[in-house]
Write a protein that binds this DNA or RNA. Structure first.
Lengths: 191, 191
DNA sequence: CTCTACTTACTGACCGGTAAGTAAGTAAAA
DNA sequence: TTTTACTTACTTACCGGTCAGTAAGTAGAG
């Protein structure tokens, strides 16, 4: 019970941030959506920025756990990547949108917050992904290229922002998920 | 001379919108950056939304012209796509960021503006791209898949938002551009 | 050649509204 | 009786947008 409101704030704020962006969402809106006073939000979070970072941190932690779990599996790197793509794409759209949110809105924040996020982002997400890709290249499963470029291609496809349908609503269908994984893997696999 | 300020507003506002988002940028900021009064902006543009749309319209027109130019060339679809990727990626980052800006911030706007943009976006950009891709599939150069998914993959890679380096600063190097085009084409080419 | 009427391209002051954030009080639980 | 978890009521700052006014042209009439 005691963390009830805190969790509700995180949930509601995430939805609003995703739909309206950092500056587009107001603290008042969250409060009204939850039926509490605005000041209640400030009991649980120091300021808007801290609330925003808390949301991103939760998602990065989940990503980090997923990547660790996949990396521990006794399968080729290519297979790890396929599982990663399929897992992420089958998440609800709002979930996936969180990482986009972070990358998008990060330069709205204070330098300190930006740096703090940057560290987590690289440690928990990009770094782990890059290592799996690098392993794949070293094992000859993937074509040799700068790991950065491989990450670029992978994430570019996985987190597009072009179709509103991707930002909101239903998860991607299984067929499409598989097709997208194929495209990515054909794009970067060894020839 | 007479459109001088208007063009300067468009230029300055584009930079600010790209860096700070729709709500993150204020009309006051533009005015101050240009050394004119805020009201001068409202002489040239009805409101913030119209200014925003004007910026997007210019970029969509450029894209439209580029796609027409490429489509008119007597080369296979695959080659058209390669040229498209290489052309866009060699644009300055701020230029490329415009399309991201539109997709990102479009749901901040009024329903009318959203619809107006949607029409242009599909007519001048997505539609043309999709037709080139569809031609490629019909000619057997590309693997058969829903044209939407092909567009998704293509644009996802071409307009990523993950590395701040892609959103600002120098254009992508020629090597990287070629590598990225290869990844895309290997991903969607016929096997 | 010049006076009149009008337009273009602004300025500076200001408006209502809303943003983030806070100080002080309170009711219930420990 | 102190701490927890809030609410009420407020401040300060800034937002988009509008207003009346004006300097500098320009175009036509005489």
């Amino acid at each position: 019970m005691e963390n009830d409101l805190r969790l509700n704030i995180l949930q509601t704020a995430k939805t609003l941030f995703v739909n309206k962006g950092y500056h587009g969402m107001s603290m008042r809106e969250i409060a009204e959506a939850l039926g509490v006073s605005k000041a209640a939000l400030y009991y649980h979070f120091k300021d808007k920025e801290e609330l925003f970072l808390a949301i991103l941190r939760i998602y990065l932690d989940e990503m980090s756990a997923l990547l660790d779990r996949l990396d521990a599996q006794p399968v080729p790197s290519v297979e790890k990547i396929r599982l990663f793509v399929e897992d992420v794409l089958s998440q609800p759209a709002e979930q996936r949108a969180t990482i986009r949110l972070g990358s998008q809105e990060i330069n709205q924040l204070s330098p300190e917050a930006r740096q703090a996020f940057g560290v987590l982002y690289r440690e928990k997400f990009i770094g782990k992904l890059q290592r799996i890709l690098q392993d794949g290249m070293d094992a000859g499963e993937l074509r040799r290229m700068p790991a950065e470029t491989a990450v670029w291609a992978l994430l570019g496809i996985m987190f597009p922002y072009f179709y509103p349908a991707h930002a909101q609503g239903a998860p991607v269908s299984t067929e499409t998920t598989r097709l997208v994984a194929d495209i990515i893997l054909d794009g970067i696999a060894a020839r």
